[in-house]
Design a protein around this nucleic acid. Structure first.
Lengths: 75, 75
DNA sequence: TTGTGACTTTAAGTCCGTG
DNA sequence: CCACGGACTTAAAGTCACA
């Protein structure tokens, strides 16, 4: 499983959980709306700086965004 | 605490634990020798692709490299 | 509310070397 | 074995108008 896929999935899932739109999250994280969109569609491999800013916007830990549900199985 | 700092610390600590040189890890992860050095000195903020490749080279999860020991306190 | 293409600027990442 | 430098190529960061 690609790390981008894991990140994109966790990002979208957590954003929905918090009830935020891409626009609202973008504002919280100090990023552009379309950039969040790009990350969710796996256009880019985000840098850890961006992961951190998004994590703060979602009020979670950076590590949570890279955590794979099936980590124990794929290791 | 900066995410780069956390990453750099975890990277160096885990690499030492595994008994690998920067050169050996670079080879394992398919990265440049000097780049690993740069990451440990916090010159660059790595992309999640690089985090993932390094994690594989160290035989750990990507999330482990971004995990902060004092996460609960700094949140 | 989100996806997408086009675009420019900045930083990542490689490869050569040195002490 | 590692810190550090210069020069280089590629990918990400960041913004916009439009569907």
């Amino acid at each position: 499983m690609e790390i981008r896929e894991i990140f994109a999935h966790n990002l979208r899932a957590l954003r929905k959980t918090k009830g935020l739109s891409q626009e609202e999250l973008a504002h919280e994280a100090g990023l552009d709306r379309t950039y969040i969109s790009s990350l969710e569609r796996q256009i880019y491999g985000a840098s850890i700086d961006v992961v951190d800013r998004i994590a703060k916007g979602l009020a979670v830990e950076a590590a949570d965004l890279l955590r794979c549900p099936e980590a124990e199985a794929t290791k």
